[in-house]
C-alpha cells in the first residue's frame, strides 16, 4: 500500500477507530472534492481533485473494514520488515488449519443436506471467533502502528486467521442465497 489510509482521513493509525468521526471526515472531504466544486477550475486541478477523491474513498473503505484496517496497520508497522509479518502469516499452525478444514467440511455437508439451520449454527460459531480475533487485534494495536517487532508475527497471524473466517462467512452468505432461492 502506497498511501496511509489513516493519514488520508486525518485520523490516528489505530484499530479502534472512532467510526462516527471517521465517517464525518470522509463525508466532508468527499463534499469538498466533489467535481461540482471544480467546474471553473483548470483541467489539472480537476484531475487532482478527482484523484484525491478516489484516494479518500478507498481510505474509507479500508478503515471501515476490520480486516483491511488490520492489514493496513500491519503494513504501516512493517517498515521494511516484511519477513516478520510473512513468518506469522504463512506459518498458520496445523491445528488451526485442521480445524478450519473440518469446519469447511461441516459447512459443505450442511449445504449438501440443504440444512440452513446447521449452516447458520456454523456461521455463528465462526463469527464469534472472528469477534474474538478482532478484540485481540484491538488490544494488539492499542499503541497504533507502533507495535514492537516481537509482536508483529503474532498480529500477522491473527489477521491471517481473520481472513480464513471471512472466507468462511462469505461462503455462508453464498450458501444462504443459494438455499433461499
Amino acid at each position: 500500500m502506497s498511501v496511509d489510509p489513516f493519514a488520508t482521513l486525518g485520523i490516528g493509525p489505530v484499530f479502534d477507530v472512532d467510526m462516527a468521526a471517521a465517517e464525518k471526515v470522509h463525508r466532508e472531504l468527499s463534499r469538498a472534492l466533489h467535481p461540482d466544486r471544480y467546474i471553473g477550475a483548470s483541467p489539472s486541478e480537476r484531475r487532482a481533485a478527482l484523484t484525491k477523491a478516489v484516494e479518500v474513498n478507498e481510505a474509507w473503505r479500508i478503515v471501515r473494514d476490520p480486516l483491511r484496517r488490520a492489514d493496513a496497520l500491519l503494513g504501516l508497522a512493517d517498515l521494511g520488515d516484511a519477513s516478520a509479518i510473512e513468518e506469522g502469516a504463512l506459518k498458520a499452525d496445523p491445528e488451526f488449519l485442521m480445524d478450519m478444514l473440518e469446519q469447511r467440511e461441516a459447512l459443505s455437508e450442511a449445504k449438501a443436506a440443504r440444512d440452513l439451520e446447521a449452516v447458520r449454527r456454523l456461521a455463528v460459531g465462526i463469527d464469534a471467533r472472528a469477534r474474538g480475533v478482532e478484540a485481540a487485534l484491538s488490544k494488539g494495536f492499542e499503541s497504533g502502528s507502533a507495535v514492537s517487532r516481537a509482536d508483529l508475527p503474532g498480529l500477522a497471524r491473527k489477521v491471517g486467521e481473520l481472513k480464513f473466517y471471512r472466507r468462511f462467512l462469505d461462503e455462508v452468505s453464498a450458501i444462504e442465497d443459494e438455499l433461499a432461492a
Binding site: 502469516a89 498458520a92 478444514l101 467440511e105
Partner: peptide, 30 residues
C-alpha cells in the same frame, strides 16, 4: 496448507508403498 491471502484450505494425502512409490493420492480443497 492454507493461504491466508485468500482463506483457502487444502489437504493432500499420499499413500506410499514399500518401494517408495506413491500408489494413491487424495485431496480435499476448499
Amino acid at each position: 496448507v492454507g493461504a491466508p491471502a485468500c482463506g483457502d484450505v487444502m489437504r493432500l494425502q499420499i499413500k506410499v508403498n514399500e518401494q517408495g512409490v506413491i500408489e494413491d493420492a487424495k485431496f480435499k480443497t476448499f
